[in-house]
Design a protein around this nucleic acid. Structure first.
Lengths: 239, 239
DNA sequence: CATGCGTCATTAAGTAATACAATTTTAAAA
DNA sequence: TTTTAAAATTGTATTACTTAATGACGCATG
C-alpha cells in the first residue's frame, strides 16, 4: 500500500533489492541506530507493502553485508558499524547521498594509496603473458583517447587499466578492488581525469614499470600517481 | 561486546546458510564452472531436500557475495571469478579446504603488507583519545600474556590489537579488514605468533609510534613487522 | 520467607507448500 | 520480415506450521 521507494519506480530491479536498499539507507544514515531492533517482519511487510517472502530476501541481503542480524524471538537487529562491509560494491552504491561525498572520496583515496601501489608491484611480478598483452592494448587505447579527449571514454579506459592491474596481481584478495574502484567512480564520479595528458604520462610510467617487471618502480610511480592526481580534493592531514 | 560466537554458530545452523555454504563451496572449487547455469530452483530444492523458500534465500546470499546472478527465464548462473567478493569474511570461511591453505595465506599476506602499514600510519594521525587509551590497555594485556604465554590468549589479544588499529584509522574502508583478519586467523590458523616475545617487541614499536602520532614511523615498523613475522611461510617471490 | 530451578506460554524468526505474476527466449504464424 | 503467441524460469504472494529464545509463573528447596 504505502510505497516508500516510489522514487525508483520501474527501475527493473527486483522488489527485494529495492526494499533492501531502502532499509540499508536508513541504517547507513543512522535512522535505524546500531544495536536497535528493527520492526518485526510483519510490520515491515506492511510498511513496504510487500510480501514476507520479498522482505525476508531483503533482510538476507543485508545480513550478508553485515548490516543486520536475525534471531528467533529476539528479532532483527542492526549490528555495530565495525561489522559493516564497506568493501562491498553494493553497499558503497547505497552510500550515495548519505555521507559527505568529499569526505567519503578522501577516505577512499586513503585506501587506494595503500592498495594500488602494492597491486602494481605485484602485477609487475605475477602478470601473465596474456595479461601483459592486454595491458598494452588498453594503454594503446588510453593514448588514442587523449588524442581526441572524451571524459566518459577516458574514464572507461582508465577503469579497465586499473582493473586489469588488480587482476594481474593474480592474488584473490586484490580482485575485488577492481569492482570497488569501478563502483566508486560510477557512483561518486571522481573527476580524477581533468588533465588527461598529465595523467597519461603517469599511467605510462606505471605501464612501463609493470611491463619491465620492475616491481619497486611500479610501486613508487603508482604512489606518485595517487599523490599528484588526487590533487583536487582539499587535502586533510596527509599521512 | 564479545558477541558473535554463539550468533555465528546459530546462524550457521540456519538451513539456508548451510545450503548457501554447500553451493558456494561447489562454485569455489570449480565444480560449478564460471558462466555456467546452475540447476533450476526446483532441481536444487530436491537435491538439497529443502523448500523453495530456503533455497532462494541461499541463492540471495550467494548473489550478494557476487557468486551468482539470477534472471527470469534464463536461470541462475555462476558469475566470473573477478566479481567474487574475496574480501567478504563469510566467503573466506567457505574457502576452508578448497584452495591450498599455504598459498591462500601467502596471498593474504600480500594484502596485509599493503593495508596494515598504511592503517598504522592513519591511526597514528586519526586515533581519538579514547582509542589511544584502549590501545594502551590492549598493549598492557599483550605484555602480561607474554609473561605467562598462552597461544590462544595471545592470538585473541593480537587480533584485538590489530582490529583496534583499523578502527582507529577512522576510515570506513579500513574497518572491514579487522573482520577479515579475524576470520583468516580463526579459519586458517596462521601461527604468526610462535615467538611471542619477539613479536611483542615489534608490537611495542607499532604501539609507541601510533601513540606518539608518528605516522611515518608507524608505517615503517608495521612494514618491518610483516616482513619478519610472517617469515615461516616459504616466501615465493617477494614483492 | 527467600532462593533456586524447571516448566510452560508467548513471540518472532525459520521453513514449507502452493499459487500466481512477470520476464524473456524461442518459435510459430501472419 | 514482423508480430504474436507459448513455454520455461525466476519473482512475488499467501498461508500454515516449526523452531528457538525469553520471561513469567509456579513448584520445590534452603
Amino acid at each position: 500500500m504505502t510505497n516508500n521507494f516510489s522514487t525508483i519506480s520501474t527501475s527493473s530491479r527486483s522488489l527485494h533489492v529495492q526494499v533492501a536498499r531502502s532499509i540499508a539507507r536508513r541504517i547507513l544514515a543512522g535512522e535505524l541506530p546500531q544495536g536497535s531492533i528493527v520492526p518485526n517482519e510483519m510490520a515491515l511487510c506492511e510498511q513496504f507493502g510487500v510480501s514476507r517472502t520479498a522482505l525476508r530476501e531483503a533482510i538476507k541481503l543485508l545480513t550478508s553485508k553485515g548490516l543486520l542480524e536475525s534471531r528467533p524471538k529476539i528479532g532483527t537487529k542492526v549490528v555495530h558499524r565495525a561489522y559493516w562491509n564497506f568493501l562491498d560494491p553494493q553497499l558503497i552504491e547505497w552510500m550515495d547521498g548519505i555521507s559527505d561525498s568529499e569526505v567519503f572520496c578522501t577516505q577512499f583515496l586513503g585506501l587506494r594509496r595503500a592498495v594500488e601501489p602494492e597491486a602494481c608491484a605485484l602485477a609487475a611480478i605475477h602478470a601473465t603473458a596474456e595479461q601483459r598483452i592486454e595491458l598494452s592494448e588498453i594503454f594503446q587505447r588510453m593514448v588514442k583517447v587523449t588524442e581526441n579527449f572524451d571524459l566518459d571514454t577516458w574514464t572507461e579506459v582508465d577503469l579497465s587499466f586499473h582493473r586489469l592491474i588488480f587482476n594481474a596481481t593474480n592474488n584473490d584478495f586484490y580482485l575485488p578492488f577492481g569492482n570497488i574502484l569501478t563502483t566508486m567512480f560510477k557512483t561518486f564520479i571522481l573527476h580524477s581525469s581533468k588533465h588527461g595528458a598529465v595523467c597519461l604520462n603517469e599511467h605510462r610510467l606505471i605501464y612501463e614499470a609493470i611491463m619491465a617487471g620492475d616491481s619497486a618502480k611500479a610501486r613508487s610511480v603508482s604512489a606518485d600517481h595517487l599523490q599528484s592526481s588526487k590533487h583536487r580534493l582539499p587535502e586533510l592531514e596527509t599521512a
